[in-house]
């Protein structure tokens, strides 16, 4: 038996709306890069929307979680509310002054702006709690 399979420190669950606009795809790209950099771990908002129990229960049981909506339509927020997942860290990218459009050629400075905003939004999350009682896959 392994002594422990748990990672050290907390893993932030990152849920991006990944929608069909520049801001939706900025949320997606930021989630990818923050995962690659070890800040957190992108998780499937789609699985929560589909009410698949593994995804829904994972979101409910993860204390350190951030939801990123591209615009004020708030699809990610609505999915979490429908699934009964408590809102934790949350941000809307158009609130950062990024204009919503259909230009999918993402700008580096905007991706970096979103990543910084996500990190700031997560500043008050219980990072130590995430993964403290279990193993994060």
């Amino acid at each position: 038996m392994a002594e422990s399979c748990c990672t050290t420190g907390g893993q932030v669950m990152i849920l991006a709306c990944s929608g069909g606009s520049n801001v939706g795809q900025l949320s997606n790209q930021a989630a990818i890069e923050l995962t690659q950099e070890g800040f957190g771990k992108m998780f499937c908002l789609c699985g929560i929307g589909g009410e698949l129990s593994g995804f829904v229960q994972s979101a409910k049981d993860t204390p350190a979680m951030v939801a990123i909506d591209g615009c004020a339509v708030g699809c990610a927020k609505a999915i979490l509310e429908k699934a009964g997942v408590p809102q934790r860290a949350y941000l809307v990218l158009t609130d950062l002054g990024i204009e919503k459009n259909k230009d999918f050629a993402l700008q580096r400075d905007q991706v970096d702006q979103v990543k910084a905003a996500v990190k700031q939004a997560c500043a008050t999350l219980p990072r130590d709690a995430a993964g403290a009682s279990g193993c994060r896959g």
Binding site: Q11, Q57, A59, T62, G134
Partner: peptide, 16 residues
């Protein structure tokens, strides 16, 4: 998202 997890009759009840 993590383990341990418990599944009862195909429904995930607890994670991490």
């Amino acid at each position: 998202f993590g383990t341990p997890a418990v599944v009862v009759d195909g429904k995930v009840k607890s994670v991490g």
